[in-house]
Computed example of a mutant assay.
Amino acid sequence: MLLSIENIEDVLRLEFRKQVVEPGIQDAVTFLRRWSYLSSQVVRLHGAALARIHIPDIQYLLAEIAYGECGSGNKSKIHSKLLLELINQSPNAQLITQQIDPFLAQFFEHTISHLSQMSQDEAIGFIVGLEAPAYDILHLLKQSFIAVDIPEIDVLQSEYFIIHDAVEKEHQQSGHEAIEIIMANGCQLSKIHKGGDYAINFLITMVGNTVVV
């Protein structure tokens, strides 16, 4: 029986590591293509989750995460734009920026539809699950950028990684605060876990090695 949000996050993180991190990235170009697409669309996930939230304090926390993804008021700092700037430093940029496989695009749209019908508790769990493996994903991204011939120093000193190294802890803390608020309103951890599990399976399909592009 899961007794705390930390237990839930650990379980979600371990599943992502087992399915994605341990097998490793077999094709850095494909991984970066998928992540670039997800980065450009991720705010839609936050928006769909936000639409399910009725408590103003939690609305604020989720909107804050989405605002950060959109550059915190600076259009040039939108995270997907910073990611693309880094991708364009690779000699493989043209391959990386090709259109994503239609199956994954359809799967993403299905996830948006499903998320828009979740309960408030499950929607919060989904966002927690989306953020749980953030540091693992950053590590995979660093490896992948180096694999597509971008010097490690350029990767580490890019705005994309400087910003993400700084904000991921804040995003996870916002998720924790949302959980504390909703727990005080009688939420069951099982519902949070259900939403989080859906998010992890979503990530595994989008960026793991389970779908060949």
Rank of each mutant, 00 (worst) to 15 (best):
L95D: 15
Q59Y: 05
H164S: 00
A49I: 05
D121E: 11
K191T: 09
I204W: 05
H193A: 12
S76L: 09
I87V: 15
L3Q: 10
D154M: 14
F145D: 02
W35S: 02
T97G: 07
K194T: 12
D10Y: 11
M1N: 11
H110N: 06
D121C: 05
I25M: 03
E85S: 07
H114T: 14
Q41S: 07
H46F: 15
H139A: 14
I182Y: 11
A28N: 01
D57T: 13
D136N: 12
L82P: 04
F107S: 12
A66F: 02
A184R: 15
G195H: 08
M118N: 09
I65T: 03
I192G: 05
L14A: 15
I192F: 10
K75E: 14
I53Q: 04
L86N: 03
H164Y: 01
G71Q: 07
L38E: 07
I179Q: 07
G208W: 05
L84D: 08
G47T: 01
D101I: 08
F202R: 10
P102W: 07
Y135H: 05
G186S: 07
D149P: 02
E9K: 15
G68Q: 10
L104N: 02
S174Q: 15
E177D: 09
Q41I: 06
V212L: 09
A93I: 01
K18S: 12
F107R: 06
L203V: 07
N185A: 09
H176D: 08
G71R: 04
P102V: 08
V42T: 11
K77F: 06
N88I: 00
V43S: 09
A199S: 12
I179H: 14
G129S: 01
L84S: 03
Q59F: 06
P151H: 04
G73C: 05
R13I: 04
Q188R: 12
E180N: 14
D154W: 08
S40Q: 12
P133Y: 08
A184C: 05
H171L: 01
C70D: 10
L14F: 11
V148F: 05
N74D: 15
H110I: 02
Q19W: 02
Q120L: 03
R33N: 15
V211L: 05
R13F: 09
M118S: 11
A166W: 12
K142N: 05
K81V: 10
A63R: 04
Y160F: 11
N74T: 07
L2A: 06
Q41H: 11
M1V: 13
I182R: 13
S39P: 00
T30E: 04
K75G: 10
R17G: 10
D101M: 05
I53Y: 02
P102N: 06
L138G: 00
R13Q: 13
L50C: 06
Y160L: 01
E109C: 03
I204H: 06
R44T: 11
M118F: 14
T97I: 13
H114Y: 12
L62N: 04
E9F: 01
Q99W: 03
K191P: 00
L84V: 12
I200T: 12
S4E: 12
